[in-house]
Computed example of a mutant assay.
Amino acid sequence: EYEDGDLSSWINRERFQGYLHVDGFTLYELGDTGKLVAIAVIDDKNSSVEHTRLKSIIQEVARDYRDHFHRDFQFGHMDGNDYINSLLMDDLTIPTIVVLNTSNQQYFLPDRHIESTEDMVQFINNILDGTAEAQGGDGLLQRIKRIIYDAKSTIVSVFKSSPLLGCFLFGLPLGVISIMCYGICTADTEGEVFEHEGAKKESGDRELTDEGSEEEQEEEKNGKYTELSDGELKQKDIMEKKKD
């Protein structure tokens, strides 16, 4: 047993130098150390004071405060923000400093500009004592956000690399779905028209039937009246003959 745990854990934590040039593969490997990764995101081709100053601040903290932070932090710089933006699903402007927790996908951004080594040390202490705000994570909402972000990134990259292929891949399914929806809506409308016409025809037949029934009833009544009239006339004739 060692102060930092078993031997394999100690080797994992100590197998990297205190300061690294970080890329995607290195960041993945740093996940096994269990450390937070403090990165200066800069443009190596940009020699302006702001870019070189942040890189120097990270290097000074890694060197001068090794005894304080080496157990919990790994320091380095990253060239460009493309990878870090895709990892954080955010749009970081460079130069900037970000601290990653590779175990739970959380990250920390300074709430003010880092102007000196003391500012960086204060930022790290805020992370250690829990006063710095953590962003990201691996919760359900973040996973849904990751799915949406990856889908959006894939679509954008396809259209950027080959617009015609993108139109074919995404336009064809949309066209088929649109035709299916149009067919379903049209079929429903035609069905309603047929039902309406059938109902009108049925009601018309009923009206004709009712009219025919009324005429038959009137004819029966007229026939009865005629029969009654003939009977009355015959009775009158008989009565007159008796009188004579």
Score class of each variant (00 low, 15 high):
Arg66Lys: 12
Asn81Cys: 03
Ala151Leu: 14
Asp205His: 12
Asp205Ile: 01
Val158Thr: 11
Glu60Met: 00
Met180Thr: 06
Phe159Asn: 07
Phe73Asp: 00
Gln74Phe: 04
Lys35Gln: 12
Ile39Arg: 00
Ala151Gly: 12
Arg146Gly: 15
Ala38Asn: 01
Glu3Arg: 13
Ile144Tyr: 14
Arg53Trp: 01
Tyr83Met: 11
Gly223Lys: 11
Tyr19Thr: 03
Gly212His: 13
Thr186Arg: 01
Lys201Glu: 13
Ala40Met: 00
Asp230Thr: 14
Leu88Phe: 10
Tyr107Pro: 06
Met239Trp: 14
Glu220Leu: 12
Cys185Lys: 03
Arg112Cys: 05
Ser213Phe: 01
Leu87Val: 09
Glu50Ser: 04
Met239Cys: 05
Phe168Lys: 08
Arg206Tyr: 05
Thr209Asn: 14
Asp129Tyr: 08
Ser9Gln: 09
Ile147Asn: 05
Glu215Gly: 04
Ser56Ala: 15
Ile179Thr: 04
Leu169His: 04
Gly223Tyr: 10
Leu54Phe: 14
Met180Gly: 02
Glu216Asp: 09
Gly175Ser: 08
Phe168Asp: 07
Thr154Ile: 15
Val22Cys: 15
Lys201Gln: 11
Glu1Lys: 07
Leu233Met: 13
Lys224Asn: 06
Ser8Cys: 08
Glu118Ile: 00
Leu88Val: 15
Asn126Glu: 04
Asp91Trp: 05
Gly231Arg: 10
Phe16Leu: 11
Gly223Asn: 10
Gln135Leu: 15
Cys167Thr: 01
Glu50Asp: 09
Asp111Phe: 06
Leu141Arg: 14
Gly130Tyr: 07
Gln74Lys: 10
Phe168Leu: 11
Val121Ala: 09
Ile84Gln: 05
Glu192Gly: 11
Ala38Cys: 05
Arg206Thr: 09
Leu92Thr: 14
Leu36Ser: 05
Met78Tyr: 12
His51Val: 08
Leu54Thr: 15
Lys201Asp: 07
Ser157Lys: 07
Gln74Ala: 13
Asp244Gln: 13
Asp6Lys: 09
His51Ala: 07
Gly31Asn: 12
Asn85Thr: 15
Lys201Ala: 11
Val61Phe: 07
Glu202Gln: 01
Ser103Asp: 09
Lys234Tyr: 08
Lys200Gln: 05
Glu3Ile: 08
Val37Gly: 09
Ala38Leu: 05
Thr189Asp: 13
Lys35His: 13
Met89Asp: 08
Val37Ser: 07
Leu109Asn: 02
Phe25Asn: 06
Gln59Asp: 02
Gly183Leu: 01
